[in-house]
């Protein structure tokens, strides 16, 4: 795909909305178009966390395998959202599985490339952090609600 096409997709994705033009060029150097058929895994628990996925189309199930009861989906992620945060911090390993529930089109960002550029240019690094932290916070809040099991049976 032409570079301008990729730049346009990255710029239009909500995760990078409003990104400075100079940063856009930097992050696009780490980006490529990827596609997963239904049932394919974007990544598996324990594997090297080497990508950040910007989802363009389709739905991804984030799952944890539970002994005896198969995989439990704890979140789904769709168009306009991102998959993969573990690439940010050592030991750079995925902590759950990500499975395409239908055909998924995404931008895959090479995490080593992105991390290197964030280290080299802290303005870019801080900008990327400000985009990631609210997502982490939302997921923390969502996890709190799930742990509280608010729809479950009250303790008698």
């Amino acid at each position: 795909m032409a570079v301008e096409g990729l730049e346009r997709i990255v710029r239009d994705h909500p995760f990078f909305k409003g990104l400075d033009e100079s940063f856009l060029e930097l992050v696009c150097g780490c980006a490529q178009n990827v596609r997963f058929e239904a049932g394919a895994y974007l990544f598996r628990e324990g594997g090297p966390a080497d990508q950040l996925y910007l989802i363009r189309e389709g739905r991804v199930a984030l799952e944890i395998a539970a002994p005896g009861s198969g995989a439990v989906t704890f979140q789904t992620v769709s168009e306009g959202e991102i998959v993969g945060i573990s690439w940010l911090f050592p030991p750079y390993r995925w902590t759950y599985d990500a499975r395409a529930m239908e055909r998924v089109r995404a931008i895959g960002m090479d995490a080593t490339c992105l991390r290197t550029k964030c280290e080299a240019d802290h303005d870019l690094g801080y900008d990327v952090m400000k985009r990631l932290v609210p997502i982490l916070f939302q997921r923390l809040q969502a996890t709190r609600l799930q742990v509280l099991d608010i729809y479950g049976k009250p303790a008698a």
Binding site: R59, A61, L62, E63, S69, G70, A71, V72, T73, F74, Q75, T76, S78, M101, E102, Q138, Q141, A142, L145, Q146, D149, Y151
Partner: peptide
């Protein structure tokens, strides 16, 4: 829904999402 197995093709996550 808050959680599901693989037979569910819908959305998983809290209602505000």
């Amino acid at each position: 829904v808050d959680h599901a197995d693989e037979s569910w093709h819908g959305q998983v996550g809290v209602v505000t999402t």
